[in-house]
Structures are given as structure tokens and as C-alpha cells.
Design a binder for these strands. Structure first.
Lengths: 342, 342
DNA sequence: CTGAAAGCGCTAACAG
DNA sequence: CTGTTAGCGCTTTCAG
């Protein structure tokens, strides 16, 4: 039987409340008593029973996922995973909500963030573009005791456990490695497409892609990045003209999380048939293009994993624990036709 | 505030004990009362608080991982993950133990299994070779109320949630796809190596490998499987002679979970330098060969994920719940030099 | 077949 | 600065 606060109290000849005070780091306990309790904890190997504590406290964890209002399939997938997890976590006295923000209205978003308070939320997981203002707002939130993790977009090394997502440099390298291998050492150029290079994620992916392409596949030449601005029409025309202008094209790397428009646009053109194509994320659209063989490989960060990991990290922060490191490492998955089932 | 058993009892004008009896399906309650309680549960949207229940019960979950006594790096990795999880789950009133079995002593193992009892263990996760006797023993264990999941080795479709591992047919296909792509459409033969083809896992992988190689890469010809019997010396000599005998060799697929001996043997031979090599699992050895570029890709089932998933499935069975399906799907991961960090 | 009372391990007032 | 008491939501005797 594991020792309880009662055992501690008995052992020390004091009341459970005092032990409790020490355990919870509350003030107003004699220094000597504090030391004695800590010693007893060591000696008896006491480990606090969190669920009992939470029961007594009627503790509820309130987390919000702050996500862009507009987006594509991948965002949709994320939201749906948040929803799923929300119902699963209800049994774990955790309440998950979703808040929508307009990505490009920095001012409003910062305002929203600065209004959030500890008596409303215990933590947020936010998917938002970089930007000094948002960054500051998040820092202030943290200081006010609202835990923060950033999703998908950001650097794996920022803060200890404050980022959930993949290393985009490595993702870009992986893309190049796959594209190069699939292109079977042919000679020619490679199209690189994204929504916008204003996003640091795209910049990292591009950098990684170039590194590996140059290093390993010198017969392939990556063209300047084409930006679609997430606009369907523009995507169509700009890709059509690119296909015309570069007859030596061997492959395409679609860097953005939302690859739908680009892949649809490409797949409409017969010229694109023989190309080696790599895109990101597992969505309805990307999967269907993988299944037909039009896309050769997907580089994926599992949406469910991202969402669960974010929740676990927030939870760990609330409980002042370290999460299990290996579980929270979001892998850069490679999805081929062959391993995409299930 | 979520309704509690107290609310139910008040609402129905009865005592909490009766509600409890119904909730736990205990006998000796008037049929009419049972119905009434169920109705109230629906109406009030009552959801049982498992941790409160477990607290009152002093419930402890006792799981054992039954693993082969002898093995290589991958087994070691599995064990270490079990250890890690064991300490993490202590806070979750779950006790994890490891039991070693001698793989090839079926009789003894069956005996061991048949001795296990509900008052000793709530569930086991077993990594054991196929075999009708073991299979029967596991079935009987299940009937006696000890929950069972099979690890790594087995079919994804056996039982509802009774298998934790990858689809080996798909894994074999994935290997072929990668090997074919890396071989850059050269012509020649491919070596396929494993411990023993007596293992159904190897048979499945081989079948998947052949399917995809024939279908997609007809210029490559897979040679008959070489069996090493897990013996270092034999592995050395048999691979050395294979490298001599097939000058048109383009690649090697090491199918077994323990790839150390085979990779080490190959890497000692200069002839093997230019080959495309695929192996399984992420271990010290395989990783180091991936890092040097000797191995081109690893096909991996994450040991940590396997272990955690097994524990979650056992836990879910004990609590009579469904686990979150997508979380328990063990992915066939592809590890390249580029995405192997972290 | 049902209820009353005590308790799981911990916390939260309220006294003192 | 410390102890007493009641209670979180559920289970478990023991009576009745």
C-alpha cells in the first residue's frame, strides 16, 4: 500500500491539513515543519494521488484550441480531432473548446488573447502565424498563469514544452529525398509551390528542400517558389503557366499544409502525369491523389497526435509535471500508397 | 455540474447504494428499480466518475508484459519502453510487470499462461510466436477474465482490440516501394533476409514485398529468402557467399525485427556499399547504419507507441470501454536519414 | 430487495 | 502557525 497523507501526518504527529499545506506549497507553515514533512515524504516514499486531490477540489481543466477561422482540409481535420478528443476527455474532467480567429487581423487577436484570464481558461493551444505582437501577447498570458502551447507553426525548440509540431527544415529535407528518389535520377527542374513565403514554416521547408536536393540530387534544379496566396483561381493559372514554361519539369513539391487547390490544379493537366509529386498532410484530397498514384508521397504530421499531444502538454503544465518526452515527439511521417491504409 | 449518483438517488427517491448496485450490474435489485435507474441515467445525462469509483474501490490495474527471454536490440527497446511506462503509470494506479518466456518452449509457456489468474493479474500483453497451443491458452485466459492483447506478432484483424502492431503485408509492400525507388530503376536481383520463415510475420512481409516489387519494379528480381536463424556466425557466412554469388545484386531487404547481425555482416563487405538497403525497426544498430548512409530506409513500428497502446487497450478492456481507435492504430513509419532526428 | 453509515485520499473552510 | 470538521463521487459493509 502506498503511503497517504494520513500516514505522513501520523508519522510526524501532526494533522493532515498541515501536510496538505506543505504539499501544496501554501504559505504560513513553520519552516521547520516544512522541512520535517519533506523529509518524511522522502522517507516514506510518499506519492500524491492526483485524482483524489482533483476529486476533492472538483478540479476541472479548461483548455481552448484557438484556430484560424478560414482554412482548408487540414484545418478541418484538426478541428475534427479536437472535437473527438473533447468528448473523450470529458470523462477526464477536462473541457475543450474551440475558438476561431481571423488570421490576418493581428490587432483583434492580440486583444482577444489579452482578455483571456485564469478564471476562464487553464490553457490554450494556438495555431497562429508568427508575429511579434502575438508572441508578446502569449508571453503575457503565460505570466498571468494561462498555459500556452503553439501548434504546427513555430520552432520545436521554443520554450521547453511549448511547441507541438514537426521540424520543418527536416520535413523539407525529407521531401527532397523522396522527390529525388522517385525522379529516378532524371535531369530537370522541380516546381516548389506554397501559399505564401511569408510563413516561416514555408521558408524552413524550402531551405531544407534545397539543402538536400543540392546535396544528393544535383541533376535536379529547384525553381523559385511559386506562391498561390491560397487562391483557387490564381493557383490554377499560375500552375498552368508553370507547366508550360518548364518543359523539363521532373517534379513538384507542394509545401503548404493545405495542398488541395494545387494538387487539383495540377492533376487537371495531362502534362503533370509523369511528374514526381510530394505534398504535405493527410487529408481527403491528398489521400485521394495518393491513392490514384498522382501524388507519390505525403509528408504528414498526424493531426490526432498533434491535438492529443497539445492537450497532454497543457495538462502536464497544469499539474506541474513533465510529459513523457518520447510520446510528445511529433514524427515526420512518410505516407506512400503502400503504407497509407488503416 | 455533472449529475452524480446522489442526484440520481434524490431524483428517484432511493438510496445511493441501490443506484450503485444498478450501475455496477449487481444482482438482487427489483427489475422495476433497475429500469427506473436506467431511465433516470438517460434523463439526467449521468456519467459515472471513474476515478472516484476507483478511489473508493482502491482499484489497482495489474498488467504483465510477457516477452521473450532472448532477443536483440528491438526487444531491448521494447523492454525499456515497458519500464518507462511502468513508472509513469504508477501515478495512474497501474502496476506493470515484465515476465520472460523462452520462446521455443511452447509447453512451458502454455503451462505458465494457464496458471495466471484474475486475482494475480488483470491483463497481459504478450509477444509470442504463433501456435495453436499458445492461442488456445490465451483464449482460455480471456475466458477466465484476464484480458489479453498480442504484441507485434499477429494479425491486425484478430479480435476487436486484441492486437497491437503493424500490418506486415503492407510493411513488406512499403519496403519494396522504397527499395525499388532507391535502386533508381537499375536491373538486377534483390536479397531478402530474415531470421526464419517459420514466423508468419516474415511470410507476410515477404508476400507484400514480392507483390509490389513485381508490380512496380519489374527490373528487379527478389531472390529466395535467406534464413539466418538468428545466429551471428551463420549470418556472416551466408551473407558473404550471397554477395559473391549474385554480382547483379542491387539491394537487400532485411525483414526481421532484429536486423543487427545482418546489417553488421553486410556492412563489413565492400561489395555491399552501393546497394540499396532496407531494414526494420529503430534500434541503436539500425539507426547508426541509417546515419552512415549504409541503410537507406527503416520501416518502423514505434516501440513506445506499441507499449503505450497495449496498456491503453488493456485498461480500456478492464473498464469496459472502447479505446480511441485512431490513437491505437500503429503506423508503418518510414525513417530516412532526413526525418530520423529527434 | 433496500438503506444507513463509514471510508477511499485529499482539500477547504473555520476555529483557535 | 496548526487542528477540526465536513465533504468531493463512489463503494462497501452491515442491518433490516
Amino acid at each position: 500500500m502506498r503511503p497517504t497523507t494520513k500516514d505522513l501526518a501520523n508519522h510526524l504527529g501532526m494533522s493532515r491539513s498541515t501536510v496538505d499545506r506543505v504539499l501544496n506549497g501554501r504559505t504560513g507553515v513553520k519552516d521547520k515543519t516544512v522541512k520535517a514533512v519533506h523529509k518524511a515524504i522522502e522517507e516514506l516514499g510518499f506519492e500524491r494521488n492526483l485524482s483524489a486531490a482533483n476529486l476533492a477540489r472538483k478540479r476541472v481543466y479548461r483548455f481552448a484550441f484557438i484556430l484560424p477561422k478560414v482554412g482548408g482540409d487540414f484545418l478541418h481535420e484538426l478541428k475534427s480531432q479536437v472535437g473527438l478528443m473533447g468528448v473523450a476527455l470529458r470523462l477526464d474532467n477536462t473541457e475543450i473548446s474551440i475558438r476561431q480567429i481571423i488570421e490576418n487581423d493581428q490587432h483583434k487577436n492580440v486583444e482577444h488573447l489579452s482578455r483571456i484570464n485564469t478564471d476562464e481558461l487553464d490553457g490554450i493551444a494556438i495555431l497562429a502565424p508568427e508575429g511579434p505582437q502575438v508572441r508578446d501577447a502569449l508571453a503575457r498570458l503565460s505570466e498571468r498563469g494561462v498555459h500556452v502551447v503553439r501548434l504546427i507553426s513555430g520552432q520545436p525548440d521554443e520554450g521547453e514544452h511549448s511547441f507541438v509540431g514537426i521540424d520543418n527544415l527536416a520535413a523539407g529535407r525529407t521531401a527532397a529525398r523522396l522527390l529525388g528518389s522517385f525522379a529516378q535520377s532524371k535531369k530537370g527542374s522541380v516546381l516548389v509551390v506554397t501559399d505564401t513565403m511569408l510563413s516561416p514554416d514555408s521558408v524552413s521547408r524550402r531551405a531544407g528542400f534545397d539543402q538536400t536536393l543540392q546535396h544528393r540530387f544535383s541533376s535536379l534544379r529547384a525553381l523559385p517558389t511559386i506562391e498561390t496566396y491560397g487562391d483557387k483561381k490564381r493557383t490554377d493559372t499560375i500552375l498552368a503557366s508553370a507547366l508550360m514554361n518548364f518543359p523539363d519539369l521532373q517534379g513538384v513539391y507542394v509545401m503548404s499544409s493545405e495542398a488541395g487547390f494545387a494538387l487539383d490544379a495540377l492533376s487537371k493537366r495531362d502534362v503533370a502525369t509523369g511528374l514526381s509529386i510530394i505534398a504535405h498532410e493527410r487529408t481527403q484530397v491528398t489521400l485521394s491523389h495518393l491513392r490514384t498514384g498522382f501524388v507519390d508521397a505525403l509528408i504528414v504530421q498526424d493531426a490526432g497526435h498533434v491535438v492529443r499531444s497539445a492537450a497532454r502538454k497543457l495538462r502536464a503544465k497544469c499539474d506541474n509535471r513533465e510529459p513523457v518526452a518520447t510520446q510528445e515527439n511529433i514524427r515526420i511521417e512518410v505516407l506512400l500508397l503502400e503504407n497509407s491504409v488503416g
